[in-house]
Simulated scan of single mutants.
Amino acid sequence: MDSDQGQGGVRSVRRALDILSLLTEDQPVVPLKTIVEATGLAKTTVVRLVQTLEQAGLLWSTDAGYTAGPGLWRWAHLAHGSWELPPETVKLLRELADRRGETANVMIRRDIHRVCVAQQESPQPLRHVVRVGDELPLWAGASSKVLIGGASDALLTRIALDSPHGVDHVGRLREWAEEAAERGYAVSQGERDIGLTAVAVPLTTSSGVVVASLSLSGPSARITQESVTEFAQDLMQVAGQIMSQGFDHPLGPRG
C-alpha cells in the first residue's frame, strides 16, 4: 500500500509538483542526484515519482537528467490560450510602459499570494522585472494593497502570518486596503525591495469586483513622490480603457 494513501494522495501530488518546480529557465535539465538533494526524499521514492511523471509525459529522460516532457506542452498551450491578454490590452500595456519608462504589470490574487499574469518591461536598462507566472507575497506592495480590498479578517491574518511582521501586521494591511479603495490607487516604496517604488490601480468587472491590479514599478529615484499622482492618473486612464472592453476576469474580454 502507498504510504501516502492516508493523506488521500495529496503528499504524493505535492512531491511531484516539487520535482517539476525544479525545472527553470536557468535549469532546464535536472539530474536525479539534484532532485534527491533538493527534495530531501529517499532515492527510491524519487525514482518512483520520476518514473510516474515520465510515464505521464510530464518529464523526459536524457543523458544529463530530466527535462520537461511533451505532455507539459499541451498544458502550456491550454494555459497560454486561457490567460493570454487580448492584443488590444497588450498594446495599451506596451504604450503605458513606453510612455512612463517603467515596467507595467497585471497581477491577480491567488490565496495569500499575487501572481504576475502579464508584463511589459521598461525600455530603460535599469528596470524592475517580475516574470509572468511568478508568485509574490501579499503582505507588501502596491498591487497587494489593491488586491486585498474587501478581504476577510481570516485572509488578512493568514497574509500577515506569512509576513516577517506576524499577526500584528493585520491592522496595517486593513489600513492599506481601505486607503487604496478610497484614493483609487496604491503606492509602495521599498516595502519589499529597497529602492523600488510601485503604483497600482484596480481592474474590476462591470459589477465593481476587483479581479486584478495594473501597476507601474521601477527605481524610487525615477518614480518620485512628486510623480506618483501623475503615474496614478495615467494608470487609472489605461485601466478604464481596459475595463471598457468588458471582462469577467483580467485576461479575457467577454461578449
Rank of each mutant, 00 (worst) to 15 (best):
T157G: 15
S244G: 09
L32E: 14
H80V: 00
W73Y: 10
I19Y: 05
A221N: 04
Q55M: 02
G208L: 13
L92C: 02
D63S: 07
P164K: 11
P87S: 04
V201R: 01
V106A: 05
D248I: 13
L196I: 15
R183K: 11
Q51W: 01
L138R: 07
R174L: 06
V115S: 01
G9T: 04
G255M: 06
S217L: 05
V13S: 09
D234I: 11
S244H: 11
L251A: 10
A142I: 01
M1N: 06
L20F: 07
G184K: 01
Q241Y: 04
G141D: 03
G40S: 08
Q237T: 14
V238L: 04
V36I: 15
R100E: 14
L173N: 10
S163D: 02
L216T: 01
P219K: 05
S122Q: 05
P164I: 08
P202M: 01
V46D: 03
G6H: 09
I242R: 00
M236F: 07
H77I: 14
G252V: 15
V211T: 12
L53S: 08
L23H: 12
A68Q: 06
S122M: 00
Q241E: 15
Y66C: 02
D168Q: 13
I148F: 02
G218M: 04
T197F: 01
L216P: 09
V50L: 07
G8S: 06
Q124N: 14
